[in-house]
Amino acid sequence: MSGLWAMIRKEWKIYFVTPAAYVVLALFALISGFFFYSMLAVYVMQSLSGGEFGGGALNVNTQLIQPLFFDLGITLLFLLPMLTMRLYAEEFRSGTMELLKTSPIHRMQVVLGKFFAAFGIVLLLLLIAFAYLTVVLHYGKPDLSALAVAFLGLALMAAAFLALGILISSFTRNQIVAGVVTFSLFLLLWVAGWTTAYSSGTIAGFFSYLSITTHFQNFTLGLIDLKDLVYFLSLIVGGLFLTARRMELAE
């Protein structure tokens, strides 16, 4: 246990001195803030014009929160490779992997330490997003349980991204290579579901199942489907497990 804790603290320290964490936090605050403001403005405008016909305010959950969480997801897709690309590549490059592998610490503790450290930053990012949403909580009446599920979905998706990013980082000693491959894979997973727009065969269905958006969508609507939970959890567990296996191999 102390080994896991040591890894988490070390990774956090490096995140904040490099200062990758501050850059990611600041950029996320800026980008998500812009998204939030724009969407809120559109939502308010539409609600006001809708009001002329007697419809009143539009549904906050479907008209504001759902599209907003999609955009938060895209922002994470861009930023999370910055958090994971270094995690293993740098240990291999600088030779510190020799310290980790010859210390009395199980490799799963190393993997989990890195994962939890990165996830800690993700929690801070979600906190920023939540800070923006308190405005909606104050002035509107969104369905709170649906909002909580949307946050759960965003957290699960981010965790899956992290696990995949860490796995990719363990295959190279070059951070840039790790970053580019990770970002490309995230993007592919994000758009894989587009196949259903022009095809309905089994292959299109398969790609759609692979796609992150297919599974993320239900969460943004406030729905927890076992299929989606299994998808994200298997990406997380699979990614971390394969990384631990990868550590056993020689360079």
Partner: peptide, 13 residues
Amino acid sequence: GYLPELPPVYPEL
């Protein structure tokens, strides 16, 4: 205790 050929240090710390 092990000292590899390259000292296994984190230059940021």
